[in-house]
Design a protein around this nucleic acid. Structure first.
Length: 287
DNA sequence: CATATGTCCTGAGAGC
DNA sequence: TGCTCTCAGGACATAT
């Protein structure tokens, strides 16, 4: 489930192809598996990309962007099980797309995706603006200010955990890191955004930066299914530092007394410590 | 307008 | 053992 830290790790891992020139593109077919979304069609993609140089590797929320000279961008969207790889893939069957390169230390950039919910899309600058511009994608969670965070979310009636997953409001946070950052901030995931106070937003912003930066340092989280890998097909290490995610019934690593609970919000699992993430005391009205 | 729900997809694991 | 069922949750389309 690549979220911001995993996708940022992919981005950094793919940086060696900057300067490379596209020799060809390929979308290997597996008889057994459905085809992932690739746009435009492969022949059009080939026409537009062969001969182009890779100018940069960027990131838009949870997508890796291969930026070509001329400004077109190839957006690799991993969704649940997608990987951007320079090394040999976990298996050949699930390789969905190849960008073959000259003048690059890596011969090819691969998009591998076991479940096939991901996509590969080439966008002109106009298309990029329409599909992944500020109208569609909120400020990046790694750099958002406390003020912008509050401005984007504080009017919502939704529970804070649910709102954090809305990519239009804030880009990059997914199910796992939403639980983790709310635990560090000491905020109950069920609290409606409108009831959070300025101090809560400041703590949340600090916890967000702390958790995401720490996770990037450890190259993301490889969960028990082992799917997520960096660009060299190596597992991440942040799963060993999870405070609440997938730790139901275990002791809280902060207070050592609460037991982590699992609840369901918007059909997704949320994990929290009922001791460390209590609802706030009501302010007592003075006479 | 904001928010909620259904859908896609594959493989792992549970239960019988 | 092998079958069926459920679940995981990204983003988007559709419904309320």
């Amino acid at each position: 489930m690549p979220e911001l830290p995993e996708v940022e790790t992919m981005r950094r891992g793919v940086l060696p192809i900057v300067g490379g020139r596209v020799r060809d593109v390929a979308a290997p077919r597996s008889r057994r598996l459905k085809r992932i979304r690739i746009a435009p069609r492969l022949d059009a993609l080939r026409r537009r990309l062969v001969g182009r140089r890779v100018a940069d590797i960027g990131r838009a929320g949870k997508r890796v962007l291969v930026v070509f000279d001329g400004g077109d961008r190839l957006a690799l969207e991993p969704r649940m099980t997608g990987l951007a790889l320079l090394a040999d893939p976990p298996d050949e069957e699930h390789v969905r797309f190849r960008l073959e390169l000259d003048d690059s230390p890596a011969g090819a950039l691969l998009f591998w995706d076991r479940r096939g919910l991901g996509s590969v899309r080439l966008m002109s600058p106009r298309e990029f603006e329409a599909q992944l511009g500020p109208e569609r994608l909120g400020p990046d969670a790694l750099s958002v200010s406390a003020e912008a965070l509050r401005e984007r979310l504080s009017h919502s009636r939704r529970a804070i955990k649910v709102a954090l997953l809305d990519q239009r409001s804030l880009a990059g946070v997914g199910n796992l890191y939403a639980s983790e950052m709310l635990h560090v901030a000491g905020i109950d995931p069920r609290r409606p955004c409108r009831e959070l106070r300025p101090a809560d937003w400041r703590r949340l912003r600090a916890a967000m930066a702390q958790v995401l930066e720490e996770a990037i340092l450890h190259e993301g989280s490889t969960l028990s299914d082992g799917t997520y890998r960096n660009a060299l097909n190596l597992a991440g290490g942040y799963q060993n530092l999870h405070r609440v995610y997938d730790r139901s019934g275990e002791l809280c690593r902060n207070c050592s007394r609460g037991r982590i609970e699992r609840i369901v919000q918007s059909q997704r699992s949320t994990f929290f410590c009922p001791r460390c993430q209590r609802p706030p005391h009501r302010r007592v009205a003075r006479p």
